[in-house]
Computed example of a mutant assay.
Amino acid sequence: MSRIQSTPLSLLALRCPRCHEGPLFKSSAFNLSKFTEMPEHCPVCGQTYEPEPGFYWGAMFISYAFTVAIFVTSGVLLYWLAGDPALWVYIATVSIAALLTMPLVLRYSRALMLYLFGGVRYEPNRAAGTSRP
């Protein structure tokens, strides 16, 4: 894997916040049986992905904000593009949009939580294979 120099791009690529190389998740978001699984440590630099027990409970609030944005966006787009359809169309569209984006919402809410509140900063000269608690 190549190192990404930019922190926002590394976040979008779901890479380790310290080395910007190691993946944050074990499998693809399309693998619906394993899309939530994260390794305990970065395979490149050894950074712990769970700074403390229950750390990702805070990601629920980030996930909630993402979901509200999806609800509002899909509702407004439906209103403008479909000309204010019946209520059941809104409910079906918003529900389908929320279900389809659930794996990405979960992954990006966890990544954002780790990047913002994990206490980990990018170390561009971090040697591979060395771990520091």
Score class of each variant (00 low, 15 high):
112 L>P: 01
97 A>E: 06
109 S>C: 04
120 V>S: 00
92 A>R: 13
6 S>W: 13
81 L>E: 10
58 G>Q: 15
123 E>D: 09
92 A>Q: 13
63 S>Y: 02
18 R>N: 11
12 L>Q: 12
53 P>K: 10
41 H>W: 08
15 R>C: 11
120 V>L: 03
84 D>I: 07
83 G>Q: 11
98 A>R: 05
17 P>Q: 02
82 A>M: 14
117 F>M: 07
67 T>L: 04
129 G>S: 01
13 A>W: 05
34 K>P: 04
35 F>C: 01
4 I>N: 09
43 P>I: 01
24 L>T: 08
32 L>H: 14
51 P>W: 02
49 Y>L: 14
19 C>E: 06
81 L>C: 10
107 R>A: 09
61 F>Y: 15
131 S>H: 01
72 V>R: 07
21 E>W: 00
33 S>L: 15
71 F>Y: 09
80 W>T: 13
74 S>L: 08
75 G>R: 03
72 V>G: 10
24 L>Y: 05
100 L>R: 06
61 F>R: 04
84 D>P: 00
75 G>S: 15
83 G>L: 10
121 R>F: 03
122 Y>E: 03
50 E>Q: 05
56 Y>T: 02
82 A>N: 12
45 C>A: 08
79 Y>S: 11
79 Y>L: 15
51 P>T: 04
18 R>P: 08
121 R>K: 04
34 K>E: 05
33 S>N: 03
110 R>M: 05
100 L>V: 15
122 Y>I: 00
68 V>F: 09
11 L>P: 12
46 G>D: 10
